[in-house]
Design a protein around this nucleic acid. Structure first.
Lengths: 238, 238
DNA sequence: TATGAAAATGACCAGGTGGTCATGACATGC
DNA sequence: GCATGTCATGACCACCTGGTCATTTTCATA
């Protein structure tokens, strides 16, 4: 039914036109990983402008020259780290979407949110970097890097919505664009509120304990269901 | 009806514990305004870290020493500018809320969104500064400055929701916290998508022409109504 | 072990940062 | 006309930035 889109997904997945020097490629995999991890830390903590190469090499106990030998430029270092890391979140969500292919669309949305929370717990720095980049318009590569992420997110949700419509699980007259926007806003903010303290508007979602989190999640799902779901029966949870 | 809250609102409105030196206060009002406006520009454009006092004084054609005589510190300059400017958005919304006191809660939400759009059009730099600060955790005063803004926003929406519930315009069993979160997320994102290019997930909301904007707004209002509104005329649901 | 190339190194560079302060212009009161 | 105090000024400071490059170290091969 939607195999054509799957092909598109996989094509756009790995777009590595930002390559480090062969010298870096020749490094041991562990050392590469250490450099990427530490750089991710630095960028996640201070953003692109605020990040300091001096600080980074001090942490790594490595000569500054080496970084520039590997990447040439702070900007290209950033691009490399970002691209190496950015796809993971989308990939995790895509996996959930595919695993729940036959479930009710509301169950799939719930599963996506839970997967998002799990990802944040497992890779807080990656999510933090993503958040940072999202609104830092001084970032030179922002457009190129983020446009792709956004496009993937929109396509992801659009698929959920059109699937749900096709199965009659969503309101017949539903405007797809509006539905996508609606879900994007709510899901994004839900995860943001979980990950960033002062964004939860006093609802106590920030780093909430599992029981609290799941209560909030159900309350949100009720509202989403009210807005989007067709109403053949009264209750249709997972 | 809810006068007690109004008093609270007005008390928390002007909290100016960040004062410039008397020298600055003695300046002509026009010069003060020019300095604040230009500093707002600089901070909105580059964020707190990225903003340069050198660049600022160059724009103002004023000696650098003067800025430090007025404010002592880049940080205090920022705090002053932010506090002088931050309340305006909230005030604009509050005005709308009070003007529409007797309208249906959905109409009030719609009016709030339109007022938000109008504010962004009128004061793009103020909104931009707000957006910037929202996710820049390097900002030393972030917590203090933003907590207040968030609290006001939450209180604003909470009032709308509880009013709507009291009048039976919203679903009887509605969880107030969830409703506030729901509205906060959608309204915030709607305005963000209108103001910041790459956040609209391909829905074409960014700087949309009035007709497009109003169509998107109505589509969103439909979804909000489905999620929150009581259904007196229409069929089903308990 | 000797050789040569590749890779690591960190002193160094020009330019920018937030912040300081001695200087002098200018107003006011006598 | 002088003394006094306020305030604007911009040269200056220590420090940090991203980036360079001559020099040294490493190491595979002969």
């Amino acid at each position: 039914m939607h195999d054509a889109d799957d092909i598109l997904d996989s094509i756009s997945g790995d777009n590595d036109d930002v390559r480090p020097s062969p010298t870096f490629a020749a490094l041991g995999a562990d050392k590469q990983e250490r450099i990427v991890a530490e750089a991710l830390d630095e960028f996640a903590e201070h953003g692109f402008e605020g990040a300091s190469v001096n600080r980074l090499v001090a942490r790594l106990v490595i000569a500054k020259g080496s970084i520039f030998q590997y990447f040439g430029t702070k900007e290209r270092l950033f691009a490399y780290v970002f691209e190496r890391v950015a796809g993971r979140f989308a990939a995790a969500l895509r996996a959930v979407r595919d695993e729940t292919k036959d479930a009710h669309v509301l169950a799939r949305i719930r599963a996506s949110l839970m997967a998002g929370v799990a990802f944040i717990d497992a890779h807080p720095r990656i999510y933090r970097l993503y958040v940072r980049v999202s609104l830092q318009d001084t970032m030179p590569l922002r457009g190129r890097l983020l446009a792709e992420a956004r496009r993937q997110s929109a396509r992801y949700l659009r698929r959920l919505v059109t699937d749900g419509l096709a199965r009659g699980e969503l309101k017949a007259g539903l405007d797809v664009d509006a539905g996508v926007f609606f879900l994007d806003a709510l899901m994004d903010r839900f995860l943001l509120a979980y990950a960033v303290d002062f964004l939860d508007a006093g609802t106590g979602l920030y780093r909430a304990a599992p029981e609290v989190l799941s209560a909030k999640l159900e309350a949100l799902m009720d509202l989403i269901a009210g807005a989007l779901a067709a109403r053949p029966a009264k209750d249709e949870k997972r």
